[in-house]
Amino acid sequence: MKSRLQRRSVLPGFGLTMGFTLMYLSLIVLIPLSGLVLKSATMTWPAFWSTITEDRVLASLRLSFGGALIAATVNAVFGFVVAWVLVRYRFPGRRLVDALIDLPFALPTAVSGIALTAVYAPTGWLGRPLAALGIQAAYTPLGVVIAMTFVGLPFVVRTLQPALEDLDVEIEEAAASLGAGRFQAFVRVLLPALLPSLLTGFALAFSRAVGEYGSVIFIAGTTKTEIAPLVIVTKLEQYDYAGATAVALVMLVASFGLLFGINLLQRWSRRQHA
């Protein structure tokens, strides 16, 4: 077994570390996850289909995926500006801003959730001026998108930053020397070079937003703005394990599809930069 897996090396510990890795991975991740697949396999196809096409489930999937799409798009635009500014310019407070980017990673989601609700509720700092404009943010799909934007932002910024730093200045100078204006250089030279990273960041932000629970449920309210993870929780509380599993399976398949896509994207961009 060992000789087939491993090419010769003078370093020890392959069997031990590999064995431990596989065992731990199986116990914590693979076996529990496969339980979900097994559980859904006990459902009949019509039962599965009727569960996921319930109006309530469909609406929640639409909100989760649609909201995540909008949030990831907002993040792609503003995250690009933030990454650009952090890499390209020097301004007072830059380091502080840079450190703050990771706040959504570091702040527990329940805390983000109630904080966002406090800020965007009709009585909140930002909710009040929005309400004056006739826009209600909290307890509406808009609130869901705001929370999803919050959790996804670091993904876009942190994937773009190294890509921007690695860009060769000579490429921009070449475009300028060939007569391209700053905007033409940006659209024709910089943006295509950064596109793989931007798409990766977008996909990561989207994937995080689709599955997000804690940050979203408080600001979403519970009635009309139900996200898919909340449907799973509700079904579990009603001991509808099969129903919960069916919805979870749809989300899992979508997530893994995304993960696979991100991997392909990264491989493609590595090849292009070889």
């Binding site: 000579e170 490429i171 100078e173 070449a174 300028a176 020397s177 391209a180 030279v189 070079a193 292009q272």
Partner: peptide, 20 residues
Amino acid sequence: RAVGERQVGFVFQHYALFRH
């Protein structure tokens, strides 16, 4: 005048070709 308006051809040390 900016570089683009001087009608100079510039060849860079590391070529600076557009990879895409």
